[in-house]
Computed example of a mutant assay.
Amino acid sequence: MTVRERTQAFEAQFLSSKAVLSADTKGRERPEEECPLRTPFQRDRDRILHCKAFRRLKHKTQVFLSPEKDHYRTRLTHTLEVAQVARTIARALQLNEDLTEAISLGHDLGHTPFGHAGERALRQVSPCGFTHYDQSVRVVQKLEKEGRGLNLTWEVINGIERHTTGEEASTLEGRVVRLADRIAYINHDIEDAIRGGVLREEDIPEEIHRVLGRSRTQRITTLVNSVVEHSVDTICLGDEVQKQFDQLHSFMFDQVYTNPKAKSEEGKAIALIQHLYCHFVMHPDKLPGEFAVIRDRDGGERAALDYIAGMSDQYAVQIFEALYVPKRWSI
């Protein structure tokens, strides 16, 4: 037996009957020869981890725009925290950890610069519409590797596409990622908001504290334990924990996600993104060479969307300055 075959035999013997076995994957759009060492889901995880879009996440906003201090989350650290929470849940439920991790690492590859402000900016200005989860699928299918895509398995793509809203993923592993994403971002956003002086721990309502806990660690522990205790045919929280978790999300929406202090620069970010989009739609010949194929195949608007969505915060500002900010005269 190869190493991969031993791993797949282990999966068949020890994973839950509700788990997706890597040997049973629905496969890839372009069939490939099997790897002797890694299962298909392990290969997907590695492809995502080594792709360019994943590396760019380190310079993309999570909640606080381009924070100057080191300890605020970025889109990359958020992704790693999601993967950690999701793997803990998957292991406890005897689901496929490799599939869960691959979806986790790929779920935000299509996120724009400046977080959800950038996403709203592109959705408002583009007739193509824009969502970060559809863009994440586009990244892995059409943009990475000079347009060839990563050729991921069906299960990973399905989990990435359905990780946030609308219809749930077809696999329990994908549903784990969807809930782990919410568990991670709400709790680390609380910590970042406290660090930024936007929120105090004691501002959180007492009933939420009583049920979920009074610290990030306590809340994540409560939520993960509740998922493990109550998930059978689907992935869910216990009723009281779900109620207070929803209350916490509403509280964060009111106190942080729409807080003028935390979002004071978003208007500028939206204007910057929309100016860049309009510029490259009007001047598609100015797009970098790797987007020429997209421009010729899918049109200038689609190419402009792909280019801007892939930018880091810093790169978007750099391009804007090069286009619109006058430079000092020098001889």
Rank of each mutant, 00 (worst) to 15 (best):
D233K: 02
R216M: 12
L287Y: 01
R297M: 07
V325F: 10
I235N: 06
L323W: 11
V232P: 00
S231F: 03
P288M: 00
H249S: 07
E202M: 15
P205Y: 12
K243Y: 08
A304M: 03
R295E: 12
E229R: 14
D313P: 05
A269T: 09
P284N: 06
L223W: 08
L223D: 10
G238T: 04
V317P: 01
N259D: 13
D203T: 08
E229L: 14
T258E: 01
L212Y: 09
E321L: 02
E201S: 15
D246G: 13
E240I: 14
R214H: 09
D298T: 02
Y324E: 03
Y307P: 03
K286V: 01
Q314S: 09
R200Q: 13
G196M: 01
Y257M: 08
H283T: 03
G267Y: 03
E321N: 10
A322T: 11
G300K: 07
E207M: 11
H283P: 00
M311L: 15
Q274N: 10
L272S: 07
A322S: 15
K268H: 05
I308K: 08
R210H: 13
G197L: 04
L237K: 00
Q318C: 09
F291H: 00
K286L: 06
A309C: 14
H283I: 02
V281Y: 07
L276E: 05
P326E: 09
D285I: 04
D246P: 01
H275V: 03
R302Q: 13
A304G: 04
T222A: 10
L287G: 00
F245G: 05
H249R: 09
A322D: 15
